[in-house]
């Protein structure tokens, strides 16, 4: 059996020739970060320092130049012999600690029941799932879970809107898309008390510890991880100034404002700025593109940390803006929400 030697802490595990480096680690009770497990997200990228691997699946998320530099996706690479991989910190590295590696996979499968379905707007639903088995989940604010589409083997990914301190249930924000499998189930078939299988938590987006003020920009259902992070900061008695820009089309598309206000009551340094691209009569708040609103409110962002969640186009524009206004590129963290119904 090939031995996988993991740098920088030099811990080893056995991996079968026909299993991937990721699968071998998880089978051995060890942990490597992962997300989709089919080469699509790039979460499991590690540096192959020595040895050879065989392609065992799609490496869609790995650019060709990175492959040439020795990067591999652990979920799509099977060892041809003994291998040495590196999970050190760095701009592109997995940044895994020895404790995390040895602790094994914290992601699990949970049986949940539908506790609440709320119509938040015309195309956004709130879904509260109560954890049954196991009865609680440990996650980091801004992580996501995958939820099985009832009656199928397919899954959909949703970020938690609730904070880690509420571990007995999770609040998800679901954007309803016409023809979407999960959307249809949510609006037509799911009822309170129904069981849903959930896997996770996944994802590496999280609030980085620092002293810097924080700007958060949410687009639509991208509010969920932003809300979770804000609530978690309040739980931790954060004193850093936090400004949340929440962009939607119309006033009717706004949701969870009362929850954000409740967070603000616990964390006075939180400012909430709703931004409407199509304001109706009587709207006195910010209007236009969210990037324009940020520009008006915070023209100088030097020394900030930025967290962005929303559609890819919004992320692209916001990354460009906040870096131009002074946020160091390394301090811009984002999660692009791809439409899946």
């Amino acid at each position: 059996m090939p031995i996988i030697d993991v740098l920088p802490f030099r811990a080893c595990y056995d991996c079968g020739r026909n299993e991937t480096i990721l699968a071998g680690a998880l089978r051995a009770g060890r942990f490597l970060r992962y997300g989709c497990r089919h080469g699509g997200c790039g979460t499991c990228r590690v540096l192959l320092v020595d040895g050879e691997v065989e392609q065992a699946g799609s490496s869609f998320a790995l650019p060709r130049a990175d492959r040439a530099d020795g990067w591999i996706l652990a979920c799509a690479s099977a060892p041809a012999g003994d291998c040495v991989i590196d999970v050190s910190p760095g701009p592109d590295g997995m940044a895994l600690t020895e404790e995390e590696f040895l602790a094994g996979d914290a992601a699990g499968t949970y049986v949940t029941e539908v506790a609440e379905i709320t119509r938040l707007t015309r195309d956004v639903r709130g879904l509260r799932l109560r954890l049954l088995d196991p009865g609680s989940i440990r996650f980091t604010a801004a992580q996501f879970v995958t939820v099985e589409v009832p009656g199928t083997a397919a899954t959909r990914a949703f970020s938690m809107a609730s904070p880690p301190s509420e571990s007995g249930s999770i609040d998800l924000v679901v954007r309803v898309l016409p023809g979407g499998a999960f959307s249809a189930a949510l609006d037509e078939r799911l009822a309170l008390g129904d069981r849903l299988r959930v896997s996770g938590p996944f994802g590496q987006l999280k609030v980085r510890l620092s002293h810097r003020p924080i700007i958060m920009i949410a687009g639509g259902s991208g509010l969920a991880p932003i809300e979770s992070m804000a609530a978690d900061l309040a739980d931790r008695r954060n004193t850093r100034p936090v400004t949340v820009f929440f962009a939607v089309r119309t006033a009717a598309d706004l949701f969870h404002l009362e929850r954000l206000e409740a967070i603000r009551a616990r964390m006075p340094g939180l400012e909430i700025v709703p931004v409407l691209s199509e304001p109706g009569l009587g709207w006195a708040g910010e209007t236009g593109l969210v990037t324009d609103a940020v520009d008006r409110r915070l023209p100088r962002l030097s020394g900030y940390d930025a967290y962005l969640c929303g559609p890819p186009a919004m992320i692209d524009a916001a990354v460009e803006l906040v870096t131009r206004r002074g946020v160091r590129p390394r301090n811009v963290h984002f999660d692009a929400f791809v439409r899946t119904g």
Binding site: P89, A95, E99, R208, R328, N331
Partner: peptide, 24 residues
């Protein structure tokens, strides 16, 4: 300094220890 001290040391090293009671 921002990169090595704040991002790496405080944001990485110390952050991992906060669950054991270590404060930034």
């Amino acid at each position: 300094w921002q990169e090595w001290v704040v991002d790496d040391f405080v944001g990485g090293y110390i952050d991992r220890l906060t669950e054991f009671g270590v404060q930034p």
